[in-house]
């Protein structure tokens, strides 16, 4: 008798697992216990300034404001690049802002505290990732990598020019939260310099010329020199090629061969690493050059100019190179 009963044990689970019907469509009304914050933002570069438009409120309020906000953006007029104008929807009240803020626009009843702020910053604030991550922190969100931010950004061609419009939902700022938010810190985008550096005092950053990624003007009295950092691909040539190019083009010296080069080349230790370092003084100019190899390319740090200026700033140049730190 006993074994027969055992079969039940086998059969029951078969039935339980075997059959499954098409699940029906469900309609239900459920309570909402949590309301999040929603964030509208727009970044609009114009001339020397970057304009930021920002509006935060509860999800429900903001759902109603989506279209008015878009309309508002479309109405912005930059006839005077420093004093933009716009058409306010009904019930929006404009007020002159304090400090950095250009204008504050109150929307709806006061107690809702729905304020659209308009702020202008200089070109140093152009990194979109950084700005959006700053905004994310304001509504209690962790910073994202550039790639992950993509879905939140909308590139819009406004009458006033191309803008980036942001729409995000977050739990809201956490009052007692201390320190940076958890998660990955924002990383620099591909346009940013791949390294950090400290520029010595008295060096003036100027526009990049030709291949360089970073350029400084250095003055010592009326004697001038120029510091450039340039990146060349794998085909940047051998050290000898480059040194000879510098000798020829900048210093006005004849070319040299390998053995000569070996004698002239010094080492410049930077952190754990060490790099080839040359100092060429010729009739035309004096040149300091450091060759910094990277996995896919080579960086050339170069100072070229009047002998006296270069001599005075040689220490500065070395300090500058030593301050360079490449990121990931």
């Amino acid at each position: 008798m006993v074994p027969r009963r055992r079969w039940l044990c086998v059969l029951v689970p078969l039935c339980l697992a075997g059959c499954r019907e098409d699940e029906p469509i469900v309609k239900q009304t459920v309570p909402r216990v949590s309301v999040m914050q929603r964030f509208f933002g727009a970044i609009l570069p114009k001339g020397e300034k970057i304009w930021f438009f920002k509006l935060v409120g509860t999800e429900d309020d903001m759902a109603e404001l989506q279209e008015p906000f878009d309309e508002f953006l479309k109405s912005i007029d930059f006839t005077d690049p420093l004093k933009p104008k716009w058409k306010l929807p009904k019930g929006w009240i404009e007020e002159v802002g304090k400090e950095m803020r250009y204008k504050t626009i109150h929307i709806g009843p006061k107690e809702k505290k729905l304020d659209l702020s308009v702020t202008a910053l200089g070109l140093e604030a152009e990194d979109v990732t950084e700005n959006v991550n700053r905004w994310r922190a304001q509504i209690g969100l962790v910073a994202f990598h550039k790639r992950d931010l993509e879905p939140f950004l909308r590139k819009v061609d406004l009458p006033a020019g191309p803008a980036i419009v942001v729409d995000m939902i977050g739990p809201g700022a956490v009052a007692q939260g201390k320190g940076p938010p958890m998660g990955a810190p924002p990383r620099p985008g591909p346009d940013a310099l791949p390294f950090k550096y400290e520029a010595p005092k008295g060096w003036e950053k100027i526009a990049n010329i030709t291949l360089s990624v970073l350029t400084f003007q250095v003055k010592e009295g009326d004697k001038k020199a120029r510091v450039t950092v340039s990146e060349l691909g794998k085909k940047s040539g051998s050290l000898l090629d480059n040194v000879n190019r510098w000798r020829r083009d900048y210093a006005g010296l004849p070319e040299i061969n390998e053995t000569q080069l070996a004698k002239d080349v010094q080492e410049l230790a930077v952190g754990l690493e060490s790099f080839k370092y040359v100092d060429i003084d010729g009739p035309k100019q004096r040149i300091l050059g450091v060759v910094w190899p990277r996995p896919d390319s080579t960086y050339f740090f170069k100072m070229a100019g009047h002998t006296d200026a270069v001599e005075k700033h040689k220490k500065n140049f070395e300090t500058f190179v030593k301050s360079v730190q490449f990121g990931g």
């Binding site: 499954r20 098409d22 699940e23 029906p24 469509i25 469900v26 309609k27 239900q28 009304t29 459920v30 309570p31 909402r32 429900d60 759902a63």
Partner: peptide
């Protein structure tokens, strides 16, 4: 669909229905 501050209406199609799609629209 938001009904008010406290409630919302939800209409749900299960994932298994979506997964076994056969070109025919889900009509209900």
């Amino acid at each position: 669909r938001r009904l008010n501050d406290k409630e919302q209406e939800e209409i749900l199609i299960s994932g298994s229905r979506l997964r076994q799609h056969d070109g025919k629209p889900i009509v209900d």
